[in-house]
């Protein structure tokens, strides 16, 4: 049911003029993708330094809340660019991407990473003043930081794998995988 609706939505999106224009333009599509990949340096670069600081591996002699606070702005700018270019990439190839198992795993990982980030910020705000000059954050924040690095590594990996069609609907897939990838009966 939900897979049928997603397919309909993807097909409708695919038929729009903008979607066709982007996918058919060699330079436009590739520059959107290049921007999406390069913002890894901005968004995930800042994220990595915040998380590494919490784990005690980067800038241990600088206050943790200073690092988190100062790097948050460039990280969010990078994220905004990444998000917009990501939407455009989906818009350009909606039918293919919707039925990519990697894209679907990526979206789940992104949602988990979002809740992890909220949890991290809440705990950080509540307790930072007591430990922010320590080289390492308290255990439960270190767990969040490590989880954040792991989740984003997963997002990067599954994002890269969207390009590969090893488990696409036109392959011979086991039933559960076919349903998870959003395949529908023709």
């Amino acid at each position: 049911m939900i897979n049928e609706m997603l397919v309909q939505f993807a097909e409708w999106l695919y038929a729009t003029g903008g979607s066709r224009a982007i996918e058919e333009s060699f330079y436009l599509y590739n520059w959107i993708e290049t921007t999406h990949v390069l913002t890894i340096m901005v968004c995930l670069g800042m994220l990595a330094f915040i998380d590494l600081r919490m784990l005690g591996y980067a800038l241990p002699n600088v206050s943790a809340s200073t690092i988190a606070d100062r790097l948050n702005v460039p990280m969010m700018i990078g994220f905004a660019l990444m998000f917009i270019t990501g939407l455009l990439l989906f818009y350009a190839k909606p039918t293919y991407t919707n039925q990519s198992i990697w894209f679907r795993i990526k979206m789940v990982l992104l949602v988990v990473a979002f809740f992890n980030a909220i949890r991290f910020h809440r705990h950080m705000k509540a307790s930072a003043s007591t430990w922010c000059n320590e080289p390492r954050a308290p255990f439960n924040l270190r767990v969040s930081a490590a989880l954040s690095l792991g989740l984003w590594a997963g997002v990067v990996t599954t994002g890269r794998l969207i390009a590969y069609d090893w488990y696409h609907c036109y392959r011979d897939l086991p039933g559960w995988l076919s349903a998870a990838a959003g395949c529908v009966a023709e």
Binding site: I40, M41, L47, V156
Partner: peptide
């Protein structure tokens, strides 16, 4: 190859930009 390359790109980009 590709995914680890991109993760390293995140750390490299972060260290350059920071």
């Amino acid at each position: 190859g590709q995914s680890l390359h991109l993760m390293a790109l995140a750390v490299l980009g972060g260290s350059v930009l920071v």
